[in-house]
Design a protein around this nucleic acid. Structure first.
Lengths: 188, 188
DNA sequence: GTCTATACGAAGATAGAC
DNA sequence: GTCTATCTTCGTATAGAC
């Protein structure tokens, strides 16, 4: 199926972005990683590289939304723990060499189309986490304010851990965020 | 003077990194931005591009340390405000198109030498902010834990604001960090 | 849908003159 | 210290066959 090769390329691009950044996410690398046929590049992405990168950013966004979605009745603390668990897994599963594909694109592109993809992903994360935190017991105001801090702090912590080649910065920030959400939940 | 051209190139590279990322920070771009003579590239950086980038990362690190250094007797709140002010200025002075050079390198390189430069810069920021926060009234434990969150959250917020082409994510995170430091200062 | 071949430009790096 | 010229490699993109 056509879309199967396309999907593999998008997933591969997202992985490469997270691990090596935008520059290293070339068609050659994606083809090598996925085993996709070279001839299908411009068949599946007639608008070229930015189209593939944009799709990879969207994919990374959807992946996190799916991973963070709890069953019924998650507390705010559990929502935070779930979000942290996703990123902890990214770091531990790669010896801290992998990070966030969306951040990698955001800091390395001039294309306003790609920036819009990234902005939309971040907005969707903040929005969904805000909803889940509110459903988990926080006030609407606290929930949406804290969701923004949560996304920013975790993204920053992932960068720090990649630089440090160590989980320590991430875990330090993670512990602090858990304390914060407990405080907010306790005051309600 | 030889080192004057070299210093201009390093400053220019740091600016380009912050604004356009590692890929776009080519020798050609640096020469165009700084007006440095093309012939001096491998005179000043015999080890090539990574040497220039590493120097630019170090430079960005030192710049922030200098900018955040207060006069005598700054409170913890003032230390936080000062750190935030530096990054707010970076964003407002560039229509949110500029971010952090160190982050840009961290997410875009495989070189462990460059990662070490970045890690050392982040470590120096956390360490110095921790000292200043402790001098500003926080307990030693609170100071160093909060310094890490501060760096991570602000770096993440700068990325979010670049993607969003808006100061809103940054200011939302900034407000939250100020509330946090006030709480920590109040409990002491 | 996939292939090969190739055009085109950019970037890093080197050589040798001045 | 700086210059021009050049080499090599690589990445994007296109053309046209199968």
């Amino acid at each position: 199926m056509a879309s199967e090769v396309r999907a593999r390329m998008i997933d591969g691009a997202a992985q490469l972005l997270a691990r090596q950044g935008l520059q290293a996410t070339s068609f050659s690398e994606v083809l090598e990683l996925t085993g996709a046929p070279r001839g299908s590049v411009y068949h599946h992405f007639p608008e070229g590289k930015d189209q593939m990168i944009g799709a990879a950013v969207d994919r990374a966004g959807e992946f996190l939304l799916a991973a963070v979605d709890p069953g019924e009745g998650a507390t705010a603390e559990q929502v935070v723990e779930r979000f942290l668990a996703v990123w902890r897994a990214v770091l531990t599963g790669s010896d801290c060499r992998s990070g966030c594909a969306v951040v990698a694109v955001t800091v390395a592109t001039d294309s306003s189309a790609l920036l819009n993809h990234a902005a939309e992903v971040f907005r969707s994360w903040r929005s969904r986490l805000g909803e889940l935190l509110e459903a988990g017991g926080l006030s609407g105001e606290d929930a949406h304010r804290f969701a923004t801090v949560l996304v920013a702090a975790v993204e920053g912590a992932v960068v720090l851990s990649r630089a440090d080649e160590s989980l320590e910065p991430f875990e330090s920030v993670a512990a602090d965020l858990q304390v914060q959400v407990r405080q907010l939940a306790g005051k309600g």
